[in-house]
């Protein structure tokens, strides 16, 4: 995978996953990593920023005698997720008008994550 999901795309992916269910750092990283080629260390700053922007909140749950910090999406986060998705669709459309595919099905290979 040559194209990196960065900035707004990564934000959108994280928020979309959190819209499905709350998650803790490791599980969220694994979910993203299953689909996208991101490094383990990229996600913490993203979570931190989204938290500062009040797109998500955190709460702690006891697990094996320690705390596990869960991330929960907020209303603002849901709105941001929609913005990201809209940006992506706009961008995708622009690129599609320039890049032509030999096979139509090639358009359908892009990974999941923004299925709404």
């Amino acid at each position: 995978m040559a194209i990196q999901a960065t900035g707004i795309l990564l934000d959108g992916c994280v928020l979309s996953l959190l819209a499905e269910e709350d998650a803790y750092g490791y599980s969220l990283t694994q979910k993203i990593k299953n689909i996208l080629d991101v490094s383990e260390s990229t996600l913490y700053p993203v979570m931190r920023r989204l938290q500062t922007d009040e797109c998500l909140t955190v709460y702690d749950m006891p697990h094996n005698g320690r705390n596990r910090r869960y991330y929960k999406i907020t209303e603002r986060g849901l709105a941001r997720r929609d913005e990201c998705a809209a940006e992506w669709i706009d961008f995708k459309g622009r690129i599609d008008t320039i890049l032509t595919f030999k096979e139509d099905e090639a358009c359908n290979i892009d990974g999941g994550g923004n299925d709404e």
């Binding site: 960065t6 900035g7 707004i8 990564l10 080629d37 490094s39 990229t42 700053p45």
Partner: peptide
């Protein structure tokens, strides 16, 4: 924006 600097 997170800098996509340090990668895998």
């Amino acid at each position: 924006k997170n800098p996509q600097s340090a990668q895998n």
